[in-house]
Design a protein around this nucleic acid. Structure first.
Lengths: 174, 174
DNA sequence: CCATTTGTTTAGAAAGTTCTAAACGTTCGT
DNA sequence: ACGAACGTTTAGAACTTTCTAAACAAATGG
């Protein structure tokens, strides 16, 4: 790791590994993405597994995951049988995709569960008007409210065409 | 699990377990929180470990984690040597805390790394004006921009007193 | 003081995850 | 049609995380 280009590549691989790890993706996905992001030319599986010193199988699996999340796409190079890969560089698009395919689903699921429990709780309260039943209804309602709001927020972010531009309406508070 | 109150409690424990798990906390933290959230009275360690059928040690560790994130607080009951615990019910407060103590730090760290790499990259470009160096500068700049924007967003959310009320300024887009 | 009750720590077991190397099936050039 | 060059799948090894049971330390009441 003596030349600067190499140093920078390694640095970004490390940083991206950390980021993907934090967001619940595998570390290797981040490293692969970092490698591709700084490469002017698309890269092959073999090249990448050599660069990261990981097995070809591992590389294959993680590249497929990256493709599944639209962080990387396949590119064909004429006259070469190998698959080539390049990084998706539109981060807002990637974020929208993840919000849509992962975050939103999780919020919906949570909302469903809690709404169901609230329903049950209200029925139980009608059947037997105990203080504990009333308490449960009140708390579950509060929780439902909260999740509903978050769910709406994600819904809005998800569909914004340019998250960045719209973002700073928020800053003029007070 | 025949009576309704029990059913509801178990249901919320399951839902909260799922939620905390999704957000990178332990599942048991969620289950404990769910249990406390539906309890009108503060609960003891022993009671909770019995309810969840987990060891006392495990309960202790996870309750401490919940306290660390301000999701649960300790309560003293006069004449009893045991510690009692109750759920924090202000979700916005909890979210702000997590943003401040976890999310923001991670964004700052990412921004630092990338800014550093961009710096290095610019120096390298000055030393030797290759096409590849220019490419790296351009891409890293774009990435820095992105992270910076996200970082600012988190910063804003973090300091909003009432996230909920301010949220729907966003909806009048178009 | 001592015995008991309490929360915490710890060492190792159990469970879960991720990795590699090798086997596999497909495609393509010859 | 054959062999080499691919990407994918898989079985099990290596590593990481999480859990339990038991040891421990601190505090309390008698």
């Amino acid at each position: 790791m003596s030349n600067p280009a190499e140093e920078i590549r390694e640095g970004l691989m490390e940083a991206m590994g950390r980021i993907t790890s934090f967001w619940g993706f595998s570390k290797i996905m981040g490293q692969l993405y970092g490698l591709l992001y700084l490469s002017p030319k698309p890269l092959t599986l073999d090249l990448m597994s050599e660069q990261l010193s990981i097995s070809k199988g591992n590389t294959s699996i993680n590249i497929r995951a990256l493709e599944r999340w639209n962080m990387v796409r396949t590119v064909w190079v004429k006259g070469d049988r190998k698959d080539y890969y390049e990084a998706e560089t539109d981060f807002w698009k990637i974020v929208r995709g993840v919000l849509r395919e992962r975050e939103k689903k999780e919020f919906d699921l949570a909302l469903d569960s809690v709404s169901n429990l609230l329903q049950k709780s209200r029925e139980a309260q009608k059947a037997a008007k105990t203080a504990e039943a009333a308490f449960a209804v009140e708390r579950l309602k509060k929780l439902e409210d909260f999740i509903q709001t978050m769910d709406k927020l994600v819904g809005v972010l998800m569909t914004l065409e340019d998250l960045k531009r719209n973002l700073f309406g928020l800053t003029k508070k007070k």
